[in-house]
Amino acid sequence: MNPTSAERKLLLKLPSGAEEDVVVRFFEPHPIEQGDWQCDYEIQGDSIHRLLYTVGIDSVQALSLALGSVRVDLEHIERKHNAKFYFLGEPGHEFK
């Protein structure tokens, strides 16, 4: 796994009142086959662990796609658990 290039700490509040710390990490994009680039990212908490990636034509596109994909993944987690992410004490995760 490449070094972490950025991370964000979130709080996931469940309907039961339980709270879970969740960290979203983006790893440095790296070249793969045929000149494309891959950006790995991770969503990790006590009950959540997802390691995913996006592929782009260069490192910027791979990172940009990862930033967009994580939003979809976090929204899926919220729906699946009927929960809500919080960032800096405010509702939402701020990935747009």
Rank of each mutant, 00 (worst) to 15 (best):
K80N: 12
P29I: 01
K9I: 02
L11A: 05
D58C: 13
V22N: 01
G17F: 13
V70I: 11
R8A: 06
N82L: 10
A18P: 11
S59D: 09
Q61E: 12
G45A: 02
K96V: 13
D58R: 10
S16A: 11
E19K: 15
R25P: 02
F85R: 01
Q38M: 12
G35D: 12
Q38T: 09
R50Y: 08
L67D: 07
Q34K: 15
R50L: 13
V23Y: 01
P91Q: 07
M1G: 15
E20K: 00
E7I: 09
N2C: 01
L11P: 01
H30E: 13
D73T: 14
I32M: 09
L52D: 13
V24L: 07
I32A: 11
F27Q: 04
D73R: 15
Y41R: 01
F26K: 00
P3W: 13
Y41N: 02
D21C: 08
G35F: 06
H93Y: 01
G92K: 00
E94T: 10
L10M: 02
G56M: 07
K80E: 14
E33P: 05
M1T: 15
V24T: 07
K84E: 08
G56Y: 04
H81W: 07
R8K: 14
R79W: 12
I43C: 05
I32Y: 09
S16I: 09
W37G: 01
